[in-house]
Design a protein around this nucleic acid. Structure first.
Lengths: 244, 244
DNA sequence: CGTACACTTGAGTGGCCTCAATACCTGTGG
DNA sequence: CCACAGGTATTGAGGCCACTCAAGTGTACG
């Protein structure tokens, strides 16, 4: 998504046009479509254009842990293509629009517009910081704090791509999804959501998350507002390398 | 560490020499030295040469979550330098040897030896898969499974850099470290270790982890042996890009 | 020799889990 | 149009896993 990168640095008209090239091979996929299956060999790199998906892993006995949400502008299988088989599954949460990207096209574009490489590096760093925060959340926060933190993380990610307003957003979050994301049971998510609602902090109704008390919620969850977007120009030039 | 990269692809003599350049500015640091402090601006990129460290985050009330272990051959602050300030703290676990790497030198080397870029991309993918596994572990596995899984992950990582033999390794793992890594309390780690010992699976004594029943342990934890090293040559050429 | 740190073990508590029943909404087919 | 099935949310009851508090042991170190 062009909008995400432009938070990193201003994009030239040409660079935007180059990004458009990645969107050439589009495909419409219905809800609950696997974009990737754990253990299967990789197809190609997929770019989410519109819609949402979840990355998750299944344990042999059926337990599921959701790793992250795939939002518009996110790549699927970019890092993983160095492995022989997919390490996790990806499933669309709603009817979505994806672009299939031939890796060579991607790298052509990056070669032509080196600044985009920096932007991709930046988003990779952001992705990792989201994973790190999730580890902290699941490992050391209570159920109450976990939900609060997740809602704020998603708010910020969606604002970055222009899909959330100041305090609310639409996302197909069932309680089962929340439970598998945060390492909780469905029942306990239901009870905890009720407490958050009663406290006047957040409401989740018909796939719409509304944050009624942003300050209160971030106080509860120790979420640093703006933490994802913090950015400083790199203290050095980003190199390019090429492998034959 | 040269040894890690050579698992990815054979390295030429010249490439090895180039990697040596990164080790030029060495520094010896004692135990419990912060290499990085949460919230502080970044210094430079650090390469662990010998020794170990932990990356962790602290919550305001003092709870600690360890994100990952820094082993020889790992970089500290490579991805994070795009952010204004450090997102997590890093602390040495024992007396260590580190190399301070000027980012420009690193990128010079990558430019001269593009295959090293591919290797770094590969290790980044591996790092991420470790984070992903930790999320699954903390979110959906029991204390018993968590410890089993961690011991196997560390075994594999250390074997990759030649610091573990077939079934044992030395690492300064206190029970507090294990607890903060796995989202458990110290007391419960103690009890669970006792159960693993009684089951004849693992022993942890004087900083030495010995795995007595590798098959049993991986059955308990659903750890895929060899999962980190799985590698397939990339289906495309890794591009290089440069930012001015 | 005393202090500090790490580990162990016991006792009691609580957060979150499981099982289960109910209610609601939506889409589907007779 | 209604009956029905499937997915989703709520609520109660009971139980367990992991937590906290606390005391005691062993080892390292100044």
């Amino acid at each position: 998504m062009v909008r995400k990168f432009s938070h990193f640095l201003p994009l030239s008209v040409d660079a935007v046009a180059a990004l458009e090239r990645l969107h050439e091979v589009r495909r419409h996929v219905p809800r609950n479509t696997p974009l990737n299956v754990q253990g299967q060999p990789y197809g190609k790199v997929t770019l989410m254009v519109e819609g949402t998906a979840i990355r998750y892993k299944l344990l042999p006995d059926g337990r599921r842990q959701i790793i992250n949400f795939v939002l518009p502008g996110d790549f699927v299988g970019l890092r993983g293509c160095f492995y022989g088989k997919a390490l996790n599954s990806v499933l669309t949460l709603e009817a979505s629009e994806v672009a299939l990207v031939a890796p060579d096209v991607l790298f052509d574009v990056l070669r032509a517009f080196p600044t985009l490489g920096g932007a991709m590096f930046w988003t990779a760093a952001m992705d990792q910081s989201i994973l790190v925060e999730r580890i902290v959340t699941i490992g050391r926060r209570s159920a109450y704090e976990r939900l609060a933190h997740l809602f704020l993380t998603l708010l910020e990610r969606l604002q970055l791509i222009g899909l959330a307003d100041e305090r609310s957003y639409t996302l197909p979050l069932s309680q089962e999804i929340l439970a598998d994301t945060l390492g909780l049971s469905v029942v306990h998510v239901s009870r905890t959501l009720a407490r958050l609602r009663a406290a006047g902090l957040v409401t989740l109704k018909e796939n719409r998350v509304t944050i009624h008390d942003l300050a209160g919620l971030s106080a509860v969850s120790d979420f640093e507002i703006g933490s994802l977007a913090h950015y400083r120009p790199p203290p050095f030039s980003v190199a390019t390398f090429r492998q034959e």
